[in-house]
Amino acid sequence: MGDKAAEKRDVWQGTLALMVLKTLQAMGPLHGYGIARRIEQTSGDLLAVNYGTLYPALLKLEQEGYISSEWGFSDNNRKAKYYKLTRAGRKQLNKEEREWEQTTAILARFLAPGEERS
């Protein structure tokens, strides 16, 4: 049972990581709350970011060296931990983007002979 849950989370973490990296690329240094908000907004509020998965994902990315963090202050002067993309992170993002595009392109060919998605 535990394994099943882990597997699901794995998939989710995979895409979540990509979203986090992309967000940081687009927005520059940002705190956890900001990242979550931004992802939710970008998805048109279709996604609800579960913080129980967001922070472990951030931690993982940091351990892998793709992002780095630093304490700072928000616009309204709240202390917050800011994450930003590292060089390795930028490379990884490029790589993952390419892979993702490939995967979606392949999947699109399988799934959608009738259903056009641009």
């Binding site: 705190h31 956890g32 709350y33 900001g34 908000r37 913080y51 922070y55 928000s74 309204n76 709240r78 202390k79 917050a80 931990k81």
Partner: peptide, 17 residues
């Protein structure tokens, strides 16, 4: 401890919003 602080700050940012 750091994680707890981060959660706290997250909560505050959310409340502010």
């Amino acid at each position: 401890r750091e994680l707890a602080e981060e959660m706290e700050s997250h909560l505050q940012l959310h409340i502010d919003d």
